[in-house]
Write a protein that binds this DNA or RNA. Sequence first.
DNA 1: TTATATTGTCTCATTATGGAACAATAATAA
DNA 2: TTATTATTGTTCCATAATGAGACAATATAA
Lengths: 248, 248
Amino acid sequence: MSGNESRFEQNSEGAGYLPGLAMDFVIFGFDQDQLKILLLEYRNTNLFALPGGFVKENENLNDAARRVLGERTGLADIYLDQFYTFGDLSRYDQEPLRTIMQAKGMDPKDDHWLLRRFVSVGYYALIDFRRAAPTPDPLSDNCVWYTLENLPALMLDHNDIVKKALETLRANLDRKLGGNESWAAPLLAKAFTMGELQKLYETILGQKLRRSGFQRKMLGLDILERLEKQYSGGAHKAPYLYQFIIDK
Amino acid sequence: MSGNESRFEQNSEGAGYLPGLAMDFVIFGFDQDQLKILLLEYRNTNLFALPGGFVKENENLNDAARRVLGERTGLADIYLDQFYTFGDLSRYDQEPLRTIMQAKGMDPKDDHWLLRRFVSVGYYALIDFRRAAPTPDPLSDNCVWYTLENLPALMLDHNDIVKKALETLRANLDRKLGGNESWAAPLLAKAFTMGELQKLYETILGQKLRRSGFQRKMLGLDILERLEKQYSGGAHKAPYLYQFIIDK
DNA sequence: TTATATTGTCTCATTATGGAACAATAATAA
DNA sequence: TTATTATTGTTCCATAATGAGACAATATAA
């Protein structure tokens, strides 16, 4: 992190990084029946942004994504999906970043590398809300979970990026219904009830599903192992707990 | 095309273009029951590549894609899909491009902008085989249709790019089956038989489909208009001709 | 005129899905 | 202790979708 700090402040040329290329992340977590994503906050500016990063000159693009994801969440081995590359000219707006840098006491020149035009590769990730250690980058003051329905206005085209990420995630859910479902594992506890799994689907898809049909389909996929243990805590029949079958 | 020529030869800095960012195209056409894509050939080098291009400094990424697609095929208003961005270090191999430039009588220095590392945004397009005017770029000698099953070994990671494009196209076919099917229009004649449409699906998906089921599903989508005209030419009952319903 | 290949449609068994019912039961209220 | 309540796991059935094939229709070739 110490070497990280310097790339923003001391190095006005962005040496060691590919010029004009950035990455932005839509990092999904699931907590209390809500989908959330990680946002960066900039104090005194009222600006919010997606976590992002840059690609080193001797680094694979997707490796850079994993590295930055680790830097922001402390997590490795994450379900990570490159979903779109954003390259509109409307992204090229020096104002927000200049405001942020000035709020940090910097006085960047017009040709500071961070103020140039960037094309940004979008990734989304599904991570374990409970294990994540949200960490702001050197320019930000905070890295916080925001409920998807409650997002503030974000910098540049970042709201569009979130929208596209969610669309892609939904489409992939449909397609992956037949395959290995372990994508959902990081979003749930190790053992979970069928109701919790259904709630996760409903939250991502933004619509209610029929209970019996959902149970029928999930059990039919042979990806769930029913545990003998039972959950307790509600004034009703105790549901089974399930785990995803690994390997498969 | 005149201004195009100069960007490769006279301008060793690539001025006016975003550095390190390229686009590669998998341009699909359909002819004689075969799926084909456009390849560039380089004489005296035995090298083949996907058509590609660069993004101007004051141009949207997707607009650049449409521009380059027009330059290579002469076509506008094309179904164009950005499917993945390729950024592995293994792409960074000066040899093929140096060979090509030398075969053209150029002697580029090691830091010639074309010999630097590029991250490339992949697009695929479905175009009308009959209306296309394949046009090589200034570095290439030829722009030719190749059957997908007969592709030669391509430069750099271009075979991977083709593979990924086909995977994406197939996945999108499945998803779009319920929606508007006009994506298929550029690949077929204005009027076509159900058998021709089925053949197109089978070729893209790489598998046989059941005839009665295909007909049932297609007619049920309400996207086809049955024409009174009938095709003739085979020693059998004449099939109906169909058109896609526009607007819808 | 007959044969042949392919088409448009239909049939029927099988499977999947929508929607609801039902008994089971863990906690809570009486 | 007993009744109540909310939620679960399962079953049921009507409807829809799908797989696999049968059959008559017919434009050309023999």
